[in-house]
């Protein structure tokens, strides 16, 4: 579905997609993104000052609606990393409005970080670009099985309640990291198409739609 790009400094890409990682302090947002972009793991905890971002270029293959694999696009990902600390809250939430999709993260070894997912959801609702933006729920530190405090079932239920995908990842091993990001990218790409095609799909000149829908079908037979 994707592969890493080589050069990052030119404008040779088709889409700029801005994603943002959020969640409590210490859940592993920075290491998660570091694993995703550089495929490396840094076990040291360095608290993020305010905001930061990482970039990655991937190739996205669109699945066209009729089932066949469609065109491929170069996508430039801007992955915003936010400080989980409360004191940066006003700064970080301000950046929510510019992101097209969100990685809402919690720490599988911290019940509290999971409980706070609710608060983060309401923050998103208030500050994101729309009422129901594309979000992926990510339970990180899945490798630390013996310290686990949040059960998969619990988290899955919450994700279902919000109607968003859920992944259990490990920045340390890299498990599910790529998959969760690509799932979010896919959601955003689909949302994008929907947004553009919506006006006619809803049929703001509905009368014409049915009439014109028939026209091309007729046309085909005419072998033009």
């Amino acid at each position: 579905m994707y592969s890493a790009g080589t050069t990052m400094t030119d404008g040779d890409y088709d889409y700029l997609i801005k994603l943002l990682a959020l969640g409590d302090s210490g859940v592993g947002k920075t290491t998660f993104l570091y694993r995703y972009t550089d495929n490396k793991f840094n076990p040291k905890f360095i608290t993020t000052v305010g905001i930061d971002f990482r970039e990655k270029r991937v190739v996205y293959t669109a699945n066209s609606p009729n089932g066949t694999t469609g065109k491929t696009f170069k996508v430039h990902l801007q992955l915003w990393d936010t400080a989980g600390q409360e004191r940066f809250r006003s700064l970080t939430t301000a950046f929510f409005r510019d992101a097209m999709g969100f990685l809402l993260m919690f720490d599988l070894t911290s019940q509290q970080s999971f409980l706070n997912v609710r608060n983060w959801m309401s923050q998103l609702q208030a500050n994101a670009y729309c009422e129901n933006p594309d979000i992926v729920l990510v339970g990180n530190k899945a490798d630390l099985a013996d310290q686990r405090e949040v059960q998969e079932k619990q988290a899955k239920e919450l994700a279902d309640k919000y109607g968003i995908p859920y992944f259990e990842t490990s920045a340390a091993t890299g498990a599910e990291v790529d998959k969760s990001v690509i799932t979010l990218l896919d959601l955003v790409m689909k949302r994008m198409e929907q947004c553009v095609d919506k006006p006619t799909a809803d049929g703001h000149n509905g009368e014409g739609t049915s009439k014109l829908d028939a026209a091309p079908a007729h046309e085909k037979k005419c072998a033009c």
């Binding site: 088709d14 409005r97 729309c130 009422e131 947004c195 553009v196």
Partner: peptide, 14 residues
């Protein structure tokens, strides 16, 4: 789509 115009429009609604 490619310019991100869709995003600005959506946000403009909110």
């Amino acid at each position: 789509v490619k310019s991100g115009e869709w995003f600005l429009e959506e946000r403009g609604k909110k």
